[in-house]
Nucleic acid binder design. Structure first.
Lengths: 114, 114
DNA sequence: GCATAATATTACCGTATAGTTATATAGTCA
DNA sequence: TGACTATATAACTATACGGTAATATTATGC
């Protein structure tokens, strides 16, 4: 990340944006143990078919998942394991920050009797 | 990223969202060689003072940067080096994908005389 | 206190986007 | 071909968010 021109920044930002949505993360999470079709992902994520499909095509467009249709089904799979490295890195942070926040909230709750 | 509940996904998504903006990436990039105040970051990023300030407080709120006021100045610095690990990971992807895209574009341009 | 400088905040506008509903497009099988 | 299933897309709404201009806040030095 030394010298990134504006176009590269634009690109990186878009990549992060693809990951910046709970439903998409859920889908990626579900794909961790192998490819799944849209129905399965719809079921797992608890979203509607249309919405999941939209998120999937977005993820595919950004190169995060691969698309392969077999019969009437379309199977999606993770395009690149590095997605999970990213998430793990963030989750490390998140774990720390969430427990911290929980502590703070608890302290506050106790002191304010709420 | 094995079993993330919805709250955690929400959290991770927000973290990524903080990184999903070119101006914020530019600011983070500028902070790589040490703390800087708002004026400096405004200058470097080429944004307006108000806008940079807004992005900075957003980054601070999400724990990406630290804030320290000295005199009338406020100095910001990277809260956690892992931000750069994230960006490097993405940039690795981006580098590959951008050059690929450039190649494709070139091919297309040649074949369509455009 | 007053003027000045640095930063933050507010109000606003325009745009992007997540979600929904309804519809369209395949592909399969009878 | 026609019914059926799986997936994608379009149109729409509501909301979030980035940028800007104007104003507020905070700290310093006189």
């Amino acid at each position: 990340m030394s010298k990134l021109d504006d176009r590269a920044l634009e690109y990186v930002a878009k990549y992060f944006k693809a990951l910046a949505e709970p439903m998409r993360l859920k889908v990626l999470n579900a794909l961790q143990d192998g490819e799944k079709n849209v129905s399965q992902l719809t079921e797992i994520s608890g979203g509607t078919q249309a919405n999941v499909s939209k998120h999937l095509s977005m993820l595919a467009q950004h190169g995060l998942v691969k698309r392969e249709s077999r019969g009437t089904n379309v199977y999606y799979s993770i395009a690149d394991q590095s997605v999970y490295e990213l998430c793990d890195l963030v989750c490390g942070q998140i774990g720390i920050r969430m427990s911290l926040e929980a502590d703070i909230k608890k302290m506050f709750t106790v002191s304010s009797q709420q």
